[in-house]
Every structure is written in C-alpha cells, then in structure tokens.
Design a protein around this nucleic acid. Structure first.
Length: 223
DNA sequence: ATCCAGAGGA
DNA sequence: TCCTCGGGAT
C-alpha cells in the first residue's frame, strides 16, 4: 500500500495543523529526558494515559533517575504501581533498569537495536524513546495510529497490524521528518480525541479524504 | 462487556 | 501467527 506523495503531504499538514491547538500536555511530554520517556512509555503499555498520570508522578518522585529505579525495592515498586495492573510489567521494568546500569553505566541506549534488547522494551517503546527523547524520525504503531491510517486510507486493520512491516512502512511515509515528535503526538491525540475507536467525531474531523467518514455519515443520515 | 501509547511466549 | 496479561474507566 503506497500513498501518493501529494496525499501523504496533505494528510501530514492537516494533522500537524490540528495538533497545533489540540495536543495534550502530559507530564512526560514536558521534560523529555530519555529516562522519563522510557518510564512513561512502559507505564503507558496497554494502559490509559489518564490513569498513568498520577502513577508517573509518584514513580518519578520516588525514582528520579535510572539509578534510583534500579536500586528500588521490588516489593515497594509493585505496591506503588499496583493499580496499573500487568504486574509482570513491573518486574520487567526493574530488570531493565538494572541492565541499563550494569551494561550501559546508567545511560539509556540511543540505538534502537540496543533498546529492544532491554526487558519489556520492543518495537513501540524503542521507537518512542528514539523519537521523543533523541529526536530521531521513527514512526509509531499503536492502537491509535494504526486505526487512523486504516480509516483514512481504507485499509483493513487487524490486531496484528501493529507489527506489520507494510503498515510500518506506510506510517513511515506519512511521518513528518522535521517534526517527528509533534507528528507522533498529534497522531496519538487525534486518535484519542477525534478518530476514536468507538463513536468517532467525524463532524469536526479536519481530514477530508477518509472513506470511513462517508460510511459513518451515511448511517447518520439514515438515523 | 469492552478497551487501554504492547510485549513475551508458544 | 496465535494467545495471555490486569486493574480501572466507560
């Protein structure tokens, strides 16, 4: 699935323009050190962002850097993050912190291959750190961004599409090379606020080339 | 009941 | 290329 350059550019500019006034101001978007981005992305793993905010703040006050996280008592860490569920994720995060201290002297790797060697870190979290912390133009495939691409370009989306290489190349062709972080934030927030999974707000959608919109509008008229 | 800024294991 | 993990919000 190749998107014509002009269509991709139009999509890119429309999305960036929407993001200009609609990006959400999460705490992990303010001071984007590699450690803070990494911790946030792990907490955001299959967990709603609004639910992560208080946990992220309390975790960072307890563990302001990778060394304090690696030295943190595992039981205390489990208690701190209990309400987020996915308890095994806490153990992976702790193992990850110790590995970064032991093998990288406490510096978060800047190579994607190195990041993906860390426990609990795979394609998405590695790409997020590369983009948001280090400024590299990596596309992000998550539940929001894949859904948007599927609707806008009329591609059938399965749960496995997040790991699809073709979908990744499509997302890369849409990505804004100059502002990859803003583009990815805009994609995530647009998927959350407008192009929602349930009840998408097609009325205010600034993107004009979506086939899903036409189908949805049709059902609205019938009603 | 369904879904959530996915990753690990089979 | 399947499936499971998890508490919490809607």
């Amino acid at each position: 699935m190749v998107i014509p350059h002009r269509i991709a550019e139009e999509f890119r500019q429309n999305l960036l323009n929407w993001g200009r006034n609609n990006l959400i101001n999460y705490p992990w978007r303010k001071n984007r050190t590699p450690y803070r981005v990494l911790v946030a992305e792990i907490l955001l793993h299959r967990t709603r962002a609004e639910q992560v905010v208080p946990l992220y703040n309390s975790l960072l006050s307890k563990c302001p850097n990778i060394f304090s996280l690696a030295a943190m008592d595992i039981e205390e860490l489990r208690r701190l993050l209990r309400s987020a569920g996915l308890r095994w994720r806490v153990d992976l995060m702790h193992r990850m912190a110790r590995m970064i201290v032991d093998e990288y002297g406490g510096r978060i790797p800047e190579r994607k291959e190195d990041l993906m060697e860390l426990p609990g870190v795979s394609e998405y979290i590695a790409s997020a750190v590369m983009c948001f912390a280090y400024g590299h133009p990596e596309p992000l495939l998550d539940t929001n961004t894949v859904r948007i691409a599927g609707r806008v370009f009329d591609i059938e989306i399965k749960d496995s599409s997040r790991r699809s290489k073709k979908m990744r190349e499509l997302m890369r062709s849409l990505l804004d090379i100059e502002k990859p972080d803003i583009f990815n934030y805009a994609m995530i927030d647009f998927g959350k606020k407008v192009c929602r999974k349930r009840d998408p707000d097609c009325i205010i959608c600034p993107l004009q080339i979506c086939s899903y919109r036409r189908r949805f509008a049709g059902t609205l008229v019938k009603k």
